[in-house]
Design a protein around this nucleic acid. Sequence first.
DNA 1: CTGAAAGCGCTTACAG
DNA 2: CTGAAAGCGCTTACAG
Lengths: 328, 328
Amino acid sequence: MKQTISDIAKLAGVSKSTVSRHLNGGYVSVEAKERIEQVIKETGYEPNTFAQNLKLKTSNFIGVIIPRLDSYATARILIGVDEKLKQNNYQMLIANTSQNKDREVESLYSFANQKVAGIILLATEITEKHQTAIDNIKIPIIIMGQEHCKYNCIVYDDFNAAYELAQYVIDMGHKKIAYLGVPEYDVSVGVKRKAGFKKAVNEGRNMDISYHVTSFAIEDAVNMSNSIIKDEKPSLIFCATDNIALGTIGSIYSNHLQVPADISVVGFGGYKVSEIIYPGLTTVRFDYNNTGTIAGENIIKLIKGEFINKLIISNYQIIKKKSVDKLE
Amino acid sequence: MKQTISDIAKLAGVSKSTVSRHLNGGYVSVEAKERIEQVIKETGYEPNTFAQNLKLKTSNFIGVIIPRLDSYATARILIGVDEKLKQNNYQMLIANTSQNKDREVESLYSFANQKVAGIILLATEITEKHQTAIDNIKIPIIIMGQEHCKYNCIVYDDFNAAYELAQYVIDMGHKKIAYLGVPEYDVSVGVKRKAGFKKAVNEGRNMDISYHVTSFAIEDAVNMSNSIIKDEKPSLIFCATDNIALGTIGSIYSNHLQVPADISVVGFGGYKVSEIIYPGLTTVRFDYNNTGTIAGENIIKLIKGEFINKLIISNYQIIKKKSVDKLE
DNA sequence: CTGAAAGCGCTTACAG
DNA sequence: CTGAAAGCGCTTACAG
């Protein structure tokens, strides 16, 4: 039924060794090569990967650990990674942790057990346990979305993006701003975006800023925005993610106010939906697809022992839409 | 370094066969069992899956073929599938075809080559080539989203959902309706939803209906809606998917009209964002997460040779929001 | 209830 | 340039 390397060897009149050598780019005479290729074409032979992996003690799997699957950013990254891996005959393996950090660590070990050739970690936080696991398993790894001095990282330019976006809203005349962020365990989103924002407002004059913390869930953003709207009535709510911004916009409308006439809103992330909703959401766009491609490229280089940049800072674009009103 | 079954056998003072038998639930004396378990606990031994798979000529992989990764519905389904598979010690393998039908067929063969234990196909269309592939590879398969008499399927109740949603908008007083659908190669979305809609409007009186076809892409929906709005000015646009509805809403606003005051809109799918945007989108919700779980359960049953229902029709809910105006 | 042996399909020194 | 042989780590009849 299914052909093995012995069948091919027999049909081509050579030994298994020679077939294997041909497949793996070793020295084979021209005649042998031709006969083997001919037989492979006729039979459609494909090597058994389990046997290969067993022998070689590695695999062509690359594990990707993600915090959630139903996220636009994650999906775009995975598409980029997957395309690049496919081109290079690697296969993507996904471990979805559903925002559970223990599962991230477990996934590191279980990927090691499955002998993946490399790992890409879409990180939220790098704890001690993460580091122990990464150091123990000794598998090439690339960390995305968070910076860590010990490892190879690809990060977004959260600080400068937040700084530039904040400058823009200040230029638009906003002074009374509510910043709606996330907890600081997430360094990129919780700390850096806030820091960039702070830098800009510190450079402004007569600013009246309040800071609030919510979660990544839309529902929580809705609740938090409701109280912000009632208590403070800022002219703009600066949201640390697009999801938070969507929740905030919903909350503004349900309070019978208008965006941007009554309250302006900005987000962070560049979701496609942010462009479709009305009014368009002013936000920061990161090129997730591209960073996924780079991650795929780099993990392969790392596996091959080639040089890669230890830290890659991905670029961003400020998307200016109608959700920010110009104040006089 | 890494322990093998021989190491465990030596440490426990038994043979490899006995260790293997214990691991696979065969007859082992109580004393042997205890010693083996003890050693496994101490060493943290985990069997090498490549060796197991090589020997058993199968794997614990289950392949899932998806048309795209950046879709809310797909993501929810994958979450459901993944959870269920994990619970049962299966591992999900994803093949993203980027809407390319040839890749679907290729993926069937390549999954077969990887000796997956089962396949779940999120189908858009079942062509001859699909059937040939499915029949050739002889691997348990479940098809989701499209119905086919030869295979085990899980489908959404597109016909009745569209019928009920259409009845609702007719009850709300709409008579001049533009139906914005997709091509008929997609039986579930292109044919069944339209048929359900038609049945309802045929039962209505003095209906003035126009039919239009667009793609699944938001951009195309925007363009098509622009011309519908200019040429016909219907009181409601009935969209075959939520993405199309989002595009339509954007188009309405950019024509300086209001939803629902000037034109009402309904969608199909129950995206989370449909609830967040303002006004809320009236739509049909399918429980994607749950159908994913069922697909996971059923593929495992199929692999074990257990009985499953040949056709499962998943339920739906009509979500009534503000995007539909009540006409007098 | 247990162990020795064969074999899954491949790769890789090794000797020629 | 080529082939015989060993071995990757596991499972499973088979004989005891």
